[in-house]
Nucleic acid binder design. Sequence first.
DNA 1: TACGAGAATATGTCAGTACAAAGTCTTGAC
DNA 2: GTCAAGACTTTGTACTGACATATTCTCGTA
Lengths: 245, 245
Amino acid sequence: MAIQVGVSIDRSSPVPLYHQLAEQLSGAIASGMLQPGDPFENEIALAERLSLSRPTVRRAIQELVNQGLLLRRRGLGTTVANRKVHRRAELTSLYDDLKRDGGRPATTVLKHEIVRDERVATALDLPADAELLSIIRLRLSDERPLAILHNWLPPVYNDITREDLEGEGLYAVMRDRGVRPVVAHQTIGARTPTAAERRHLGLKPSEPVLTMTRVAFDAVGNAVEYGDHSYRAQDYSIEVMVDKR
Amino acid sequence: MAIQVGVSIDRSSPVPLYHQLAEQLSGAIASGMLQPGDPFENEIALAERLSLSRPTVRRAIQELVNQGLLLRRRGLGTTVANRKVHRRAELTSLYDDLKRDGGRPATTVLKHEIVRDERVATALDLPADAELLSIIRLRLSDERPLAILHNWLPPVYNDITREDLEGEGLYAVMRDRGVRPVVAHQTIGARTPTAAERRHLGLKPSEPVLTMTRVAFDAVGNAVEYGDHSYRAQDYSIEVMVDKR
DNA sequence: TACGAGAATATGTCAGTACAAAGTCTTGAC
DNA sequence: GTCAAGACTTTGTACTGACATATTCTCGTA
């Protein structure tokens, strides 16, 4: 028998009804109230019970299906997906990641200057001679060096100071200015560390670094950041969800 | 002025109308008929011109927005997105990648046996003592060793032979059997190579390997493959699109 | 008993309509 | 001339209703 999830809809809220519903259903799944494989209340019944129209309910369910939380099969009904598949598409900064995992992140700004770099400017879709803010940071977690982060930003951000970056992650600084990167293209590789990397990250020559090069874009398609990062491979790995749907 | 894309809708086709429309619009963008930044015909006009309802047209446009091809701004209209952002979410096998890039991939099956492995079985959501097909392959590109691919498959695939795997990629073999992985969870890292890796990949002890551990799932949420791969970091990197939308 | 037709169930597609909200542009008052 | 109020355009949300299609289950018939 299908489980009836308790849902309360606030029609006076500016939050769309379908989103209110999606959030609460997703919460019920995350909380374990609904287990993988459990049948889900069907659209029509759910719509009737909540006094919502079927399209609205459908849209909420579709959100969860897109997130990989639910599976719909025509004629069969909707069921809760295997927990393992639950998607966690992310575009977070390393700083946020560490904080979420309970680490104590800290940042030292090693370099902070205005430069011209044709390769980076091209990747950011700017004229080859554009002035870019180049930032090199050493990221520590629990006092231990973890990564060297080299980032380049378009001229608009030239007024970001060293102090801004010591206190929080680059993405948080950008967010404070109303910029929200939503897509990124990343290339991940590995190599032996350079002398500077060995020194800052405390590596032996035989210990590799994990490298990530990234171009990030905001919602309107403007490139907002170019990054060239190297991580102590012993202490860090990169998680990715890939998805064909 | 908005460009009117030529679209022909076949109402007798089993293909949904919104999908027919989405395909043709996406084609118009891919062909360059519509340039980044170009204004897009508005929903209402498009619906009227094609004798479709607005919800149908909206759904087609939404598909393209999800693919990152279009940008919608309320009050402003819809425009073609920056080409750079166009998404390329992929879940391809290394074999396909190499072939697409013009390399000449080849495979040597190093090992092919039935095993029990609790760690892998758990990741695949199977009982801890399930019999798994364990395959270790050496992947070569243009005669040079590139990667060691260790994969485990659920019991259903125990009849896959060495010969099956020498001729094409694992994903192609699975596809021939009607299995289509659509989501995967990957962890990417780096480390110094083991003795076996050094031998097979022709590495010096100081040259790192890039590692990728992957669990792949099909559309109904069943785990279909566990992989533990190591690549010559000098010759290979992993590309990923990350996306918050 | 075996098997096929059809009922029951649930999601998938599509139409038409109404109003809300965001952004731009015009117009009018000072 | 400047600036703010309001008109206009376009997308966003929501509802109602109808029919199509995939899947499973049941029941009647050979």
